[in-house]
Amino acid sequence: MRILKLYLHPLWNARLLLIYSFLSGFAILILAPFLMISLRSVGKGWFGKLWFPPEFTLQWFQTAIDIGNIPQVLGNTALIAAIAVAISTTIGILSGWAFGRRRLPGKEVLMAIILLPRMIPPITYALGVAKIFYGLDLVNTYLGVGLAHVSLCAPYAILVLSSTFEGLDERVLEASAVCGANTLKSFFYVILPMVLPGILASMIFTFTTSYNEFTLTLMTYGPDTVTMAVRTYLAIGEGYVEITSAMSVILVVPSLVILAMIQSGIQPEKLVGGFKGV
């Protein structure tokens, strides 16, 4: 026992070292895959047991843009995301107001029902969505793919916005009424500035959801509505690792921008509420 303690003592003294080796292992595990992708996308002649590519080139990006039709795909992705964000934010504002500010019988149950699409794996209802959209000729249209994304985005918008509206201080609204603002005025000058951060947050999160959404897109896309996620998946199937890596780098940039944005403004823990679309 004494001997064990003698051995353990230096270990306890070196706990900072242990902590940092754990943390650096964690950092390597998270970052190295992305580093490898980005090196792949600019490396040339990287074969065998080499740690780094011997030559650098931008030709894979060129190929990806030419053959992979990236500009159009990016346009598709943005348009579909815009449709999904617009529809789900509208739904979120209306229903968020009802959930946050109105007396509603069985509020918890209603909210749980609304959040169901985020708890069930998307593939289970993506089949039905695809089947219905085939019947309505919505497959391979921007509206169709955007609508399919709404099924995942809307619950999140409602969740975020109802808590935003719930946090509105009743006294400020009363104060604006006392000061003689009519409904329209108090909406534009009092309510809107107060809820704008919440609306923006909800828009950012729904955009990310739509941008990353793969399952529902895969079931409803067509040749004219290929999104970045689907394009990358197809490229992985085609098997040209370098070109796929170049596409992935393009695809990952907006996510990192958004990550930087929320890091400066929004607490990371809040993100957990928005179960990522798988």
Binding site: A32, P33, F34, M36, I37, T208, Y211, N212, F214, M228, A229, T232, Y233, I236, T244, S245, S248, L251, V252, S255, L256, I258, L259, L271, K276, V278
Partner: peptide
């Protein structure tokens, strides 16, 4: 959480 799962998988 933020990066598309596809890219994580490829990496």
């Amino acid at each position: 959480l933020m990066v598309p799962g596809l890219i994580g998988a490829l990496g």
